[in-house]
């Protein structure tokens, strides 16, 4: 019995964290926010480490690793608030294309040169409009498609069929959100030629569940960063001739964050492992992990900001990038209430 990361997983985690610490400092995130760099510069570095092809089979140039590996990496990426389409192209699209047998793009995805975004709004819960299909041509619009710089998109229709369409065939406008580190866009289709990839609605859901686990792990990492920053700040900042971390009020805020967050680590690991072992509770666990981390993440994001006092509210310490990343993960691929509703349905309640 061994519940935890293996030696290999710890080594991978360690090398990714070292890379992120040196190559993705806060200053580079600020440059992205200012529009001075785009996320391609981040993504190529991650792809060179093998993260773009993480779950892609070796035959297509990937590392053929599993969801628990991906969970460990997502936690590290969240900790660094690292930009780039890990969730969309490296996990969701890579998984769906491979399962659907549409393996042609995988080799170029594994090198990082080709990015496939996901537009699953019609399945998860469309707030506006729907995409329709006639003779392999798509019409309508899809909001909040993941990855505004993708080379192609997987578009899921409300009946669960999935089409792949080249970015050059769609109208695309970047949607500005609170979070600059994860990009989304609005896609509009006008009899745009697309290619049917899957007619299996279950595959779309299996893809969404995996995405949710990655988001949960990403939020775990981002929240851990915010907790670490809060503790460090509280041991540095002095008021009334004492570090504020010696006041019980502040200590208890930090203890509450740690107490809620620490069990989430085991939860995220199990959620990844459940897919690697195809356990019966994998889908349910994914929904619970996503919803639970959304709630814990929100609590940590608010509380850590408060520990920082006025500084937490400013741009100077940059804490808000993590606050917003946690907020982004909370809504994308299903808000907590929506996901818990699904969890209840999966349990036949």
């Amino acid at each position: 019995m061994e519940f935890g990361l293996s030696q290999d997983q710890l080594l991978l985690d360690d090398s990714v964290r070292k890379f992120l610490a040196s190559e993705v400092p806060l200053d580079k995130v600020r440059q992205l926010a200012a529009g001075e760099v785009n996320d391609a510069s981040f993504w190529q570095g991650l792809a060179d480490m093998g993260l773009a092809g993480l779950i892609i089979p070796e035959a297509h140039g990937g590392a053929d690793l599993g969801m628990l590996d991906a969970v460990a990496i997502a936690e590290a990426l969240g900790y660094a608030a690292c930009p780039g389409p890990f969730l969309s192209t490296a996990i969701m699209s890579a998984y769906l294309l491979n399962q659907a047998g549409a393996t042609d793009p995988l080799a170029r995805m594994a090198t990082g040169e080709y990015r496939v975004g996901v537009a699953f709004g019609d399945v998860i819960g469309s707030r506006k409009g729907q995409v329709t299909e006639i003779n392999s041509a798509l019409s309508g619009q899809s909001l909040f498609a993941l990855d505004a710089d993708a080379d192609a998109y997987l578009v899921a229709l409300s009946d669960g069929r999935v089409f792949m369409i080249e970015a050059s065939e769609v109208g695309r406008s970047i949607l500005s959100t609170i979070d600059v580190t994860q990009s989304v866009c609005e896609l509009s289709f006008d009899q745009s030629p697309a290619c049917l990839v899957s007619s299996n609605p279950e595959l779309v859901w299996q893809t969404i569940y995996r995405g949710r686990v990655i988001q949960a792990a990403d939020t775990l990492g981002a929240a851990q960063y915010m907790l670490d920053q809060a503790v460090a700040y509280s041991l540095d900042r002095k008021q009334f001739n004492r570090v504020i971390g010696s006041f019980q009020a502040v200590k208890h805020m930090c203890a509450e964050m740690a107490s809620q967050l620490e069990p989430c680590r085991a939860f995220a690991w199990y959620a990844g492992h459940a897919f690697d072992e195809s356990t019966d509770d994998a889908a349910l666990t994914a929904c619970h992990a996503k919803a639970h981390l959304a709630e814990v993440g929100q609590f940590v994001a608010k509380t850590s900001t408060e520990v920082h006092g006025g500084m937490g509210f400013t741009d100077l310490v940059g804490l808000h990038y993590w606050f917003k990343r946690i907020g982004f993960n909370r809504q994308l691929l299903g808000s907590p209430e929506a996901v818990r509703h699904e969890a209840a349905q999966l349990s036949d309640l």
Partner: peptide
Amino acid sequence: RDRLMKLEGRALAMQYNDMRLLS
């Protein structure tokens, strides 16, 4: 039902935390 599911998520987190402690 939402309250129930919220508590179930919290209970699951503690259950896996416990497995980690056992390991």
